[in-house]
């Protein structure tokens, strides 16, 4: 464990160093930029709140991707699942939030969104389990479909005349607002995400199905041989993966803006893949890496404000970080292989 953490920290530092070279190329002094941006994030209560807010959707999409990864499945569709989750939340909130109070509304949103995300993910899951269709391509393509579906609703049935026909829904009733933690701007989506991460970990560690998933993840044919129904297992895992990622859509619309609009996701779904990968798909590790990606996002935003760098620096740093972390896996592979051999 400690070696893993050390290697990961080492690769983060390497990514920062490589990033500093690129910053210097566009005329920003990294020795000045890093400390000032760091201070704005970590020595400022608002900085922390921003980090926690940004971390929430990344944690949920990252956890979703990580769940699929337990069976070596690649869920590239977290972005679309997030959109579908937001659509489901919006539908429920528009239908019921004026007539139900929060005690009913919030569980309905949570369960409804979870189910809707699961049903959406059942398309690639079913195609994969029973027809052998590659899930990378179906999940990827369904992202575009989900985004178009949101557009279809926003420019059609859900367009709110009271906002001058701009493509946004009307505001939800207050009963559908996710409550804030204390007097902060951070909503309860974050604890929800952490709870789900812990639950996922427990599910994998200490339940029968978790055991089956772990065996099948190590070796699918061995699991088949042991008499597990691996088709069902693939299906369930991919559906769960989509259901959890969809909750990110719920926390964004019910937690922050309380209405649906275009482009509400800043690639949270795609970033979830990085979150999961950096944590080596460990459900608890995802909590840490979601925070790390939030740091990159908020840091990139501050670099913009302070140095007028384009938003592209965020992608640049995400890419560099992912490269160094994957590259460093070689140093762990001997250790990992020894563990597998034991």
């Amino acid at each position: 464990m400690s070696v893993q953490v050390a290697v990961t920290v080492g690769s983060i530092v390497l990514a920062l160093i490589l990033g500093s070279v690129l910053l210097a190329l566009v005329g920003v002094n990294p020795m000045e930029a890093y400390p000032s941006v760091g201070a704005l994030m970590f020595f400022d209560q608002w900085g922390w709140q921003d980090l926690f807010l940004k971390m929430t959707p990344l944690l949920l999409t990252g956890l979703g991707v990580a769940i699929a990864a337990q069976l070596n499945l690649w869920n590239i569709g977290a972005e679309g699942q997030l959109y579908l989750g937001a659509i489901a939340t919006t539908w429920l909130a528009l239908e019921f939030s004026e007539s139900l109070d929060a005690h009913f509304m919030l569980p309905i949103l949570l369960i409804g969104t979870f189910v809707a995300g699961g049903m959406w993910a059942a398309i690639p899951a079913g195609l994969r389990s029973w027809f052998g269709v590659n899930e990378i391509i179906t999940t990827l393509l369904l992202n575009y479909v989900a985004i178009s579906l949101a557009d279809y609703l926003l420019f059609g049935a859900w367009r709110d005349p009271s906002t001058l026909n701009f493509p946004m829904t009307r505001s939800f009733g207050e009963s559908s607002y996710l409550p804030m933690i204390g007097s902060t701007t951070v909503h309860w989506g974050l604890p929800l995400g952490i709870l789900l991460a812990v639950l996922t970990w427990i599910l994998l560690k200490s339940t029968t199905i978790g055991f089956q998933i772990r065996v099948a993840g190590d070796n699918l044919s061995a699991a088949d041989y042991s008499g597990f129904n691996t088709k069902n297992l693939l299906f369930i895992v991919l559906v769960l993966s989509g259901a959890v990622a969809a909750l990110a859509g719920m926390t964004e619309v019910a937690g922050i803006h309380h209405r649906l609009q275009q482009n509400f996701s800043i690639n949270y779904g795609y970033t979830g893949i990085i979150v999961s990968r950096l944590a080596r798909n460990h459900p608890i590790g995802v909590i840490g890496t979601a925070f790390l990606l939030a740091v990159i996002f908020v840091g990139g935003e501050l670099l913009q404000v302070e140095y007028q760098l384009p938003i592209a620096v965020v992608y640049l740093f995400e890419g560099l970080l992912l490269f160094t972390v994957i590259g460093s896996e070689l140093f762990l592979s001997y250790r990992l292989r020894r563990r597998v051999a034991v």
């Binding site: 807010l53 964004e252 509400f264 996701s265 800043i266 935003e301 302070e306 007028q308 938003i311």
Partner: peptide, 14 residues
Amino acid sequence: TYVESVPETDSERV
């Protein structure tokens, strides 16, 4: 200064 590509949902924070 400016902040670009700010989604409407994220604008209050920015």
